[in-house]
C-alpha cells in the first residue's frame, strides 16, 4: 500500500526529566496509526520568518501505548533539541511526520525472529529506539533471551535507569549490562570503559546462537560495535545499525 506521510500536529501531554540533559516528551497525536519498535519520526520547527529546521527522533514508546513518547537529548548549539528540551511546555504543539523506517525495527510477533536472541548495544541516547523494543517485548510477554549493553558517561546520565532496573529485575530473560565511561560510583560492579572488543566478546551471544544485534548511538560507537561483532563471527545482515551522527543527536 502506497503511503505518503503527512505532517501532523502532536500535543505535549507530559514532559519527563530523564537525566540532567534528557527529557521525554509524551505526545498525543490524533489519528496516529501505531508504529513498530525502532522507528522514528521527523520533527519540524518553523520560525515566524518561515525558517525551518528538521530533525529525526527515535520513538521511545512501544506500539501498545496510546501516546507517543520521544526522548530528546539537549545538544549545545543544536537547532531543534534546545527548543524541545527547554522551551516546550505541556499543551504546546509540534509538527511531526512518521512513523518512518522499516529496517531498524523489531517486532515480537514476527515469526522470523522467534529463535534469535537479541543483543542490543546503545551509547547515550541511542538507547531510545532499543527502549521501544524492550518495552514492546515486555508488553507482549515475549521471552526471547535479550541482553542490553549500554554505555553512558556518568551514572546520573543513564537514561531510563530505574525502568531498566525494574524490567530486568522482573524478567530473568533480560539482562542489562552498563558501562560508565567517564566516572564510576564507589562500589560500581560493572564495566568502566568505552565499549571495546573484549567487552563485546564477554557480553555478546555466541554467533552459533543465531543472535540478532541492534546497535544505536553516536556514529563512531555504532561502527566500532558493528565491526567488532563481525570479527566475532556475527553475520553482517544480523547486525542492524542506527547511526545518530557525531554527538548522539541525529542531525537530519
Amino acid at each position: 500500500m502506497a503511503q505518503q506521510l503527512k505532517w501532523q500536529l502532536g500535543t505535549v501531554v507530559e514532559i519527563r526529566q530523564e537525566t540532567p540533559k534528557v527529557k521525554s516528551l509524551i505526545l498525543e497525536v490524533p489519528g496516529w496509526t501505531t508504529h513498530l519498535a525502532g522507528q522514528h519520526v521527523d520533527v519540524r520547527l518553523m520560525a515566524e520568518d518561515g525558517y525551518q529546521a528538521q530533525r529525526s527522533y527515535s520513538i521511545a514508546s512501544p506500539p501498545e501505548d496510546t501516546y507517543l513518547m520521544l526522548t530528546v537529548q539537549h545538544i549545545e548549539d543544536g537547532e531543534v533539541s534546545p527548543y524541545l528540551t527547554d522551551e516546550l511546555r505541556v499543551g504546546d504543539r509540534i509538527e511531526l511526520r512518521g512513523p518512518i523506517g522499516g529496517y531498524f525495527v523489531w517486532n515480537a510477533r514476527d515469526e522470523k525472529n522467534d529463535d534469535s536472541p537479541l543483543f542490543l548495544v546503545a551509547g547515550g541516547s541511542g538507547i531510545v529506539p532499543l527502549m521501544a523494543m524492550i518495552r514492546h517485548r515486555a508488553n507482549s510477554g515475549d521471552k526471547v533471551p535479550t541482553k542490553l549493553l549500554y554505555s553512558s558517561p556518568y551514572h546520573e546520565e543513564i537514561i531510563y535507569r530505574e525502568e531498566l532496573d525494574h524490567i530486568s529485575a522482573n524478567d530473568s530473560s533480560l539482562r542489562v549490562i552498563h558501562t560508565l565511561t567517564r566516572r564510576q560510583p564507589q562500589n560500581w560492579m560493572s564495566y568502566g570503559r568505552r565499549i571495546d572488543r573484549a567487552m563485546l566478546a564477554d557480553t555478546a551471544w555466541r554467533p552459533a546462537e543465531k543472535p540478532l544485534a541492534f546497535t544505536s548511538g553516536p556514529t563512531t560507537l555504532v561502527e566500532t560495535v558493528a565491526n567488532y561483532l563481525q570479527e566475532l563471527g556475527y553475520k553482517p545482515e544480523c547486525i542492524k545499525t542506527e547511526r545518530f551522527g557525531p554527538t548522539g543527536g541525529r542531525t537530519v
Partner: peptide, 13 residues
C-alpha cells in the same frame, strides 16, 4: 565520517 548516518534516517525525505 562522524556525520555519516544510516539510510534509515533518509526515510522521511
Amino acid at each position: 565520517n562522524d556525520l555519516r548516518l544510516d539510510g534509515n534516517a533518509a526515510g522521511g525525505l
